[in-house]
C-alpha cells in the first residue's frame, strides 16, 4: 500500500518533469538557416488564439507593422513590414517559427523584434515604464503563444 503511494508520487513527479522539459527555453532554441524545426512546447498551436496574439496591442501587436487582409476588421494595420497574406504558402512552419523566435536569424538586421529572446538587449527597460528592468527577463511572447501564432500564419494561404 505504502509502496504504491510512493511509486505513484514518483510517477507524477516524473510526468511533470517531462511536461516541463518539452518547453524549449529561449536560450536553447536550435536554428537551422533561420528555421526552427522543433515545436517549442510539443502542444499543437491554436490558430484562433494566434490571431488574437497577432492583433492585440499588449501581445504580438504584429499588425502594428504588418497588414493582414484576414484581420481587416481590426483598425490600423501598419506598413513597416510586408503584408502577411499568403505567409503560409511562402514559408514552412519551421521557417515561420524561426522568424517569430528571432527574425534577425532569417533577415539580417531586421527591424522586426525578436519575440522569443531573453538576452543581448541594450538598456533593457521594465516593459513600457522607461525604468530599468530587474530580475528574470520574460520573452515578448510565451512558447505557446509563438506556437499559436505559427498555427495562425499557416492558415494564411493565397
Amino acid at each position: 500500500m505504502k509502496r504504491t503511494t510512493i511509486s505513484l508520487c514518483t510517477l507524477l513527479i516524473a510526468g511533470l518533469g517531462a511536461a516541463q522539459a518539452e518547453t524549449v527555453v529561449p536560450t536553447a532554441v536550435a536554428f537551422e538557416e533561420g528555421a526552427v524545426a522543433q515545436s517549442l512546447t510539443g502542444v499543437a498551436g491554436d490558430p484562433v488564439e494566434g490571431a488574437k496574439v497577432v492583433s492585440t496591442k499588449s501581445q504580438g501587436n504584429c499588425v502594428a507593422c504588418h497588414e493582414i487582409t484576414d484581420l481587416a476588421d481590426i483598425p490600423f494595420h501598419g506598413e513597416v513590414g510586408p503584408m502577411l497574406d499568403g505567409a503560409g504558402d511562402r514559408w514552412s512552419e519551421a521557417e515561420l517559427r524561426g522568424i517569430l523566435v528571432d527574425a534577425k536569424m532569417t533577415f539580417d538586421e531586421s527591424m522586426m523584434p525578436s519575440f522569443y529572446k531573453t538576452e543581448g538587449f541594450i538598456r533593457l527597460g521594465k516593459a513600457y515604464t522607461g525604468k530599468a528592468h530587474e530580475g528574470d527577463v520574460e520573452p515578448l511572447l510565451s512558447a505557446q503563444q509563438i506556437e499559436d501564432v505559427v498555427a495562425y500564419l499557416m492558415t494564411l494561404k493565397d
Binding site: P75, H77, G78, E79, V80, M111, S114, F121, G125, L140
Partner: peptide
C-alpha cells in the same frame, strides 16, 4: 535599444512616411 531593439533610425530614417499602427 530595449526589448524591441529599435533605434531612432529604424522608425524615422528607414520608415518615415509609413504607418506604424495608427
Amino acid at each position: 535599444t530595449g526589448q524591441l531593439e529599435l533605434s531612432c533610425a529604424n522608425c524615422h530614417e528607414d520608415n518615415y512616411g509609413n504607418m506604424i499602427r495608427a
